[in-house]
Design a protein around this nucleic acid. Structure first.
Length: 277
DNA sequence: CGTGGCTCCTGGCGGC
DNA sequence: TGCCGCCAGGAGCCAC
């Protein structure tokens, strides 16, 4: 589930505790997380070096080393990072761990092994290698968004989640962005009007920006957000209609059938005012 | 170019 | 109480 806001939180976490500490040892507990380098290569690249600064592109966090190489983290669904003291109990599900000279450690944890660590010569090179689209929050202009979307014909939700199109949006935030834009997830990109494109663009910035500002902590999200009630029992925060679910590119997609409709007109009646929330 | 289906992966949950 | 089977979903891959 880590999408752009969660990745940004992890980047800030790394930035506040793991930079400028020399790496004394590297422990690889599960080699399946190694994305493009062998265990030996990974250890060689990290040992004796330190993280100078951190960057993020989409859902990827880069830890730039003093060697000018970059350690890139991708969190999959359940990935996280945990900074701790070597005398403390190490976190569960640590797949890789950096032990710093000063006695602190940084663990890259992952319950399902869907997360990956990569080694790259630079973040720029990594982005090109992965063919990632522009970051959904950083440097995306309305003109660029409009141009990118005009080349697509697939389902709008699939397009939003396509990391080659825009980097950073996953299943959950895509549902939120579509909800706030009043667009049904099954709509095709070429059916989206100019006004809807503007709405989508603004909601991408608003939703991801708000989530980043709140530290990706759902407890602090506004009451009118869909994602906090997203599920088969959920009701539209605006009108109380029971949410419906469709699958778009294999992902469950929750939407309000009253606010997000496929055709030109509503397919369902407006919600009753007597509806119990 | 697009889509659906499969794969990886395992904790958690519903059903019996 | 226990176990089976399914679900969650980010991303890559493949067939069509």
């Amino acid at each position: 589930m880590p999408e752009l806001p969660e990745a940004e939180s992890f980047r800030r976490y790394l930035d506040s505790n793991s930079i400028k500490r020399r790496i004394e040892a590297v422990e690889v507990h599960d080699e399946r997380v190694l994305g493009n380098a062998s265990k030996e290569k990974m250890i060689y690249a990290l040992k004796g070096h330190q993280i100078d600064h951190t960057v993020r592109h989409g859902k990827y966090v880069g830890a730039e080393l003093d060697s000018s190489q970059v350690l890139v983290l991708h969190f999959g669904m359940t990935g996280s990072v945990k900074f701790f003291n070597k005398n403390d109990t190490p976190p569960r599900f640590a797949t890789m761990q950096l032990n710093f000279e000063d006695g602190h450690c940084l663990a890259f944890t992952c319950i399902r092994i869907l997360c990956r660590v990569f080694l790259s010569e630079s973040m720029k090179e990594f982005i090109e290698w992965k063919k990632l689209g522009p970051d959904a929050l950083d440097g995306l202009s309305m003109d660029l968004f409009k141009e990118l979307i005009s080349r697509r014909t697939g389902r709008i939700k699939a397009v939003l989640m396509d990391q080659h199109f825009l980097a950073g949006i996953g299943n959950i935030y895509a549902d939120e962005i579509l909800f706030r834009s009043g667009i049904h997830p099954m709509r095709t990109a070429d059916s989206i009007s100019e006004g809807e494109i503007a709405s989508l663009f603004n909601n991408i910035g608003d939703v991801l920006g708000k989530a980043v500002d709140e530290g990706a902590d759902w407890e602090r999200f506004p009451d009118d957000y869909l994602l906090t009630v997203r599920g088969p029992m959920g009701r539209c925060p605006s009108c109380g209609t029971r949410l419906e679910m469709v699958r778009v590119s294999g992902r469950s997609s929750y939407y309000c059938p009253y606010h997000q409709f496929l055709g030109r007109v509503h397919s369902i009646d407006p919600p009753s005012h007597r509806m119990i929330f």
